[in-house]
Amino acid sequence: MSPEARREQLIELGLEMVSERPLDQVSIEAIAEAAGVSRALLFHYFESKQDFHVAIAATQARQMLECTAPDPSLEDPLAILQSSMTAFIDYVSENRSSYMTFMRGASSSDATMRAIFDDTRAVMAQRVLDHVPALGLTVTPVVEMTVHGWISFVEETTISWLAGPRISRDELLALITAALPALAGAAGVVVPEA
């Protein structure tokens, strides 16, 4: 196995384990045993347990961004939003435990982990802002703040839904997709109807 393939294998094993238990309970020993390698070999690929956890978080963030990328075949920005949010809900539903662990676990207070989360949010915000001109709007500081606030709303609402769904998946999807135009309206930005 090439070094890159081995590293990817270890990260994938880590992602599997995070789907079953909190990140702080994913030990180097358990990963080494599952991979059939020595503990020392794992440290050949990762400087520390923290470095390994960061690699797991970065991989999950990349996977989520890939599956929620705007559909280039769609032209209507609101249809693009609907499509991306559908993919987001599906992704976090399938990766419920690991998503909750990263967003709410001890790792969320780590500066390196927060940087991954912040970078992921920045990509998500930029995707929305890239489509604002198609609505006949200008990207202003108010629009930027609204988009960033909406992303926080989406995260918190989705986490609440994952923790104990009291509404259906479709109701959640309708809520988070309708929230962005509503927030924009509250900020004095008129979003044209779909």
Rank of each mutant, 00 (worst) to 15 (best):
S2R: 15
A5D: 15
R6D: 11
R7A: 02
E8P: 03
I11Q: 00
I11D: 01
L13Q: 01
G14P: 04
G14K: 04
V18L: 08
V18P: 00
E20C: 10
E20G: 09
P22C: 12
E33G: 05
A34Y: 06
A35S: 05
R39D: 05
L42V: 14
L42Y: 06
H44R: 15
Y45F: 09
Y45T: 02
F46A: 00
S48I: 08
S48V: 05
S48G: 04
D51L: 02
F52T: 00
H53R: 03
V54Q: 02
V54E: 01
A58S: 03
T59R: 11
R62N: 11
Q63R: 14
E66L: 13
T68E: 08
P72S: 01
E75C: 10
L81W: 10
M85Y: 15
T86F: 03
T86C: 01
A87W: 02
A87H: 09
F88T: 08
D90K: 06
V92F: 06
M100P: 05
T101V: 05
M103K: 07
M103A: 14
R104V: 08
G105I: 05
A106K: 06
A111I: 07
T112F: 02
R114G: 08
R114I: 03
A115H: 10
M124L: 15
Q126E: 15
V132N: 09
G136Y: 02
L137E: 08
T138G: 13
V143I: 07
E144K: 15
G149P: 04
W150Q: 02
V154H: 04
E155H: 13
T157F: 09
T157M: 14
T158S: 12
W161H: 08
R166I: 15
R166E: 14
R169G: 06
D170S: 13
A174F: 04
A174V: 04
A179T: 09
L180F: 06
P181V: 02
A182R: 12
A184W: 12
G188P: 06
V190W: 09
V191Y: 07
